[in-house]
């Protein structure tokens, strides 16, 4: 460990911005730049990527020689693990399984993100949410969802 103070959060932020800028610049290479009179599709994105890269570099540069005044704190790993897959699962299954089962499982997955949620409570909550949502969105507002999809042997 070096003894010089540095702001770890800002180092990460600077690097992240620079990486994103690099990605956009790389993706934008194939686009026509045009001239400044008639800008092509690649012109403005390239300017923005350059700007973001410079900003990222400055953030990174300024992070050295200064202590991290506010450390990052805890990371919600359990949250990431269960919250993020919930909409993905819904997206993958809403057509195949249909609205009702897909939503039920989605809610069940999301509810696992908290340590405090007991299994029975999660089950009850998911059932209630599914019934209410089906009544409101499918019957009430008439959104065009298939309630039960073709994957189910119904």
């Amino acid at each position: 460990m070096s003894t010089k103070p540095k702001d770890g959060t800002d180092i990460a932020a600077g690097l992240l911005f620079m990486a994103i800028a690099g990605f956009f610049a790389w993706q934008g290479l194939g686009l026509d730049m045009g001239t400044s009179t008639r800008m092509g599709p690649g012109y403005f994105p390239m300017v923005l990527s350059g700007l973001l890269f410079i900003l990222g570099a400055v953030i990174l540069f300024k992070a050295f020689g200064r202590p991290d005044d506010e450390p990052m704190g805890r990371i919600a790993w359990r949250g990431i693990l269960f919250i993020l897959p919930a909409p993905i699962f819904f997206g993958l299954t809403v057509r195949g399984l249909g609205f009702v089962p897909a939503l039920f499982v989605t809610t069940l997955i999301a509810s696992q993100a908290s340590l405090r949620m007991r299994p029975l409570a999660a089950l009850v909550l998911s059932v209630v949410v599914t019934i209410m949502s089906t009544l409101i969105f499918s019957y009430g507002l008439g959104l065009p969802f298939r309630r039960f999809g073709p994957w189910l042997p119904l």
Partner: peptide
């Protein structure tokens, strides 16, 4: 912990 699963369900329906 009761609220956020409901929010997630609404998010999924809304966005889709």
């Amino acid at each position: 912990y009761v609220l956020f699963p409901i929010i997630m369900a609404m998010c999924s329906i809304g966005v889709y």
